[in-house]
Each structure stands twice: as structure tokens, then as C-alpha cells.
């Protein structure tokens, strides 16, 4: 058994009377894709945002590569290699693909304050950026403005940006959302390859993708994890079938 890369212990977050995260503990092990599923409003995004540092849990603790990261802000966690994608594609619209990925390279390097050197001729930015653009399957699109990309390409751009962070773990928030059938298939293949870079905590509604990709699945309902297990265990779990999968399984 390997040490988990990411370990949540007893996380709890409430907004007024609403308990969005209720005593959640889960681990992300090296090399795995751990899918987090659950109905709308189950608190999946709230949980992701506590891991990224955008919101603070009321209780509980998060360890990342053995280090307690509760006191770090979102930028510091990103620099440690906690790379995320957003539910709604989030890129810098007026930047080209290359500039977007260069921004991530600069962020990961911890040096975003170079004032005088032109970024576009700084090979310490452009070379890694070009590499990650290719890795994400966007070769030949480096000069295109992000705003002009198709939806699927923007997803790939987000993955290139995540890769540029030299990630130790990926947090992917519904990467399949809005992808067509073919795009979804392509993305599934890319995500499957990503696992060799770093383990993935995958929030996803697309059950085909989840069952194809996930090594383990956790089911979140009303802020609580009601089950964690392999694909087969989750498919067979009566409580999960009743509360979430229903006729889909």
C-alpha cells in the first residue's frame, strides 16, 4: 500500500443550516483515478474548492504528499502541484493557447515578476509550454486565441495548463461536461494517459466515462460519502443504486 498523495480527513463545511460537506474522508493514491460521483447539489464542487483552497473547511484537515496544507492559499497549493480544471472551461480568453500555457509555466516556476524580459522570447516559458500543448493534443493551435477555440479544444487547453503546473495530482471538475460523443471519447483517452503523470480526482456525471476510467469510486450524497470502492463494488452496492445510480446501472 502506497502512501496516499492526497488525504482528506474529517472535512466539514456548512453554509448556514446547509451542511455541504459532512465528515468527508477520502484518499487519492499514486497512479489511480478516483472518481467522485453524486447527484446535483451533493457538494462535489464545494469539496473540490476546499481541496484547492478557494474556500476553507470548518473542520478537518487536508494532507498533500504528506504535508498538511490547511494553512496554504489557492496559489500556493497550485504551486505545490495541485492542478485543477473547472466545471465551466476557464482560460484567459484574449490570450493565445501558447500564452495561456506560458502563464501556467510562469506560475509553476513561482516567478511571475520578471518585468523586462519579453515573455514570448523566453525559452524557459515557451519550450515547456509548447511541449504541454502537444501533450494535450493541441499541436498546431498554439497561435489561436483561446476565445476562438471550440469547446473541446478549450478543455484540452485546460489540461495543457494543468500539465504545465508539473502536477502531483489533478482535480478535474466535470471535464466531460458539454463534450459531444466523439469529443468525450477523445478526452477519455487523454485522461487515461494523464494518470501516468499524476493521480486524478475526477468529478464527473458521465457514467460511461467514470466506469471506463475509474480505479475507485466514491459516492457523495448530501455532503456525505455513502460508499467508496471499485467500479464493481459500487455498481453492486444497494444503497448507491437506490440513492443515485437508480436505473442507470
Amino acid at each position: 500500500m502506497h502512501e496516499p498523495i492526497l488525504e482528506l480527513t474529517g472535512l466539514r463545511k456548512s453554509f448556514g443550516a446547509l451542511v455541504a460537506t459532512d465528515d468527508v474522508s477520502l484518499t487519492l493514491r499514486p497512479g489511480e483515478i478516483h472518481a467522485l460521483i453524486g447527484p446535483n447539489g451533493a457538494g462535489k464542487s464545494t469539496l473540490i474548492r476546499q481541496i484547492t483552497g478557494e474556500i476553507r473547511p470548518d473542520q478537518g484537515s487536508i494532507r498533500f504528499e504528506g504535508q498538511v496544507i490547511d494553512g496554504l492559499d489557492a496559489a500556493a497549493r497550485a504551486r505545490l502541484g495541485l492542478a485543477r480544471s473547472f466545471q465551466v472551461s476557464s482560460v484567459i480568453p484574449d490570450f493565445t493557447v501558447l500564452q495561456n500555457v506560458m502563464l501556467a509555466v510562469a506560475g509553476a516556476s513561482g516567478n511571475a515578476f520578471g518585468l523586462l524580459r519579453p515573455a514570448l522570447s523566453d525559452h524557459r516559458l515557451t519550450e515547456p509550454a509548447a511541449f504541454h500543448i502537444e501533450q494535450a493534443g493541441l499541436s498546431g493551435r498554439a497561435g489561436v486565441k483561446a476565445a476562438e477555440l471550440a469547446h473541446g479544444e478549450r478543455r484540452k487547453l485546460e489540461i495543457a495548463m494543468a500539465l504545465a503546473l508539473r502536477p502531483r495530482a489533478f482535480l478535474l471538475d466535470e471535464p466531460m461536461a458539454g463534450m459531444g460523443l466523439e469529443g468525450g471519447r477523445q478526452l477519455t483517452a487523454i485522461l487515461s494517459d494523464l494518470r501516468t503523470e499524476a493521480p486524478i480526482l475526477l468529478v464527473e456525471h458521465d457514467m460511461d466515462a467514470v466506469f471506463a476510467l475509474a480505479d475507485r469510486i466514491s459516492v457523495l450524497v448530501y455532503g456525505r460519502i455513502i460508499a467508496t470502492g471499485t467500479v464493481d463494488e459500487i455498481r453492486a452496492n444497494p444503497e448507491v443504486r437506490r440513492s443515485y445510480l437508480g436505473e442507470a446501472a
Partner: peptide, 14 residues
């Protein structure tokens, strides 16, 4: 980048 998308800028560590 921060002008256009602050959340994304934070998410890449800036």
C-alpha cells in the same frame, strides 16, 4: 491574465 480571469490565474499559482 488577472484582469481577464482572476480565478484561473490563482489556479496556476499566481
Amino acid at each position: 491574465a488577472a484582469r481577464q480571469n482572476s480565478q484561473r490565474t490563482v489556479a496556476v499559482g499566481i
